[in-house]
Amino acid sequence: MHACWGAPAIIRGMGAIAVLAAALASPVADAQGFAAQWMMRVTQAARTLNYSGTILVRQGARFDTFRLAHMFDNEQESEKLLSLDGPAREIVRSATEVRYYFPDAKVVRIEPRTIRNVFPSLSPEQTANLAQYYEFKLTPGGRVAGRITEMATFEPRDGMRYAHRFWADATTGLLLRSRLVNEKGDVIEEFAFTDVTYNAKLDKEMVRPSWTSVPSDWQVTQAGPGEFKSNDTGWTANKVPPGFIKISEGFRKLAGKRDPAAHLVFSDGLVAISVFVEPYTVTQTQIGLTQAGGLAQYSTRSDAYRVTVIGEAPPATVQQIAQSVSRNKP
């Protein structure tokens, strides 16, 4: 369908592999290339277009609106996200860092940018899993934010994951609406542009922070998820749902914590689930299940360790993984 769309060579190369794989084999392989290709097209659109708009985010019963401006200039992304409801939150992403401004708390949090610049990073195995564990369909999606869309549906073939519906601009490929649907058919999380403008002309002002420098009475917190050492952690999750494969493993320094945590990431090609293992201390946040929209987190104590699993998956899935974490048998 969309073989090349002006993506960097490495991504076109990956697309070509997907197309080749599709051409070689069965209708299943055909569909699998198609789903992965669609994901890549939409990912590329989100990265490489210039646009601004208003975004509505619904998580359960909660609504939030944001103003977003995104610019792609000289192969670099910059982005500014401003919350329009409640306390002001401003998130500015540049090529090298992400800054979170919390003006009410007088805090700015600065993080180096690390992983996302290599996306899309679907391995051939993930691409295959995407087709095996979700039924993919592409249909006309009607209008969203005044634009004609195509709707992609990822329907799970088992109860271990959520259904995803994506509406992308039929012309530009930009994702304009997405819905996460649970096993009961409830929309548990929704993301939607209510208006979108594609900007032919770049305006750097739109993606600059509102504060040219950090006010002197603000607290600056730095680092965070940036520090990551890829490594064999000695931990493993024994009951990971079929289709989820480990895509990352290492030790990570989490802000505000003394000891680094083991961090394992599993993905089925559409979503990711993270496993954290760290020494148990009494001051840590609570044990148990928490949920925010499509995101579930389950924390449990395992002897001297605390295991935390977080991901866009049903609570039962997250809980099952958490309870299966153990030391690797040598």
Binding site: M39, A46, F66, L68, I115, R252, F276
Partner: peptide, 15 residues
Amino acid sequence: LAHQEFSPAMAIQSG
């Protein structure tokens, strides 16, 4: 914050 960068479904959403 440590987790979110890994999700393909999140990566396609602007912002």
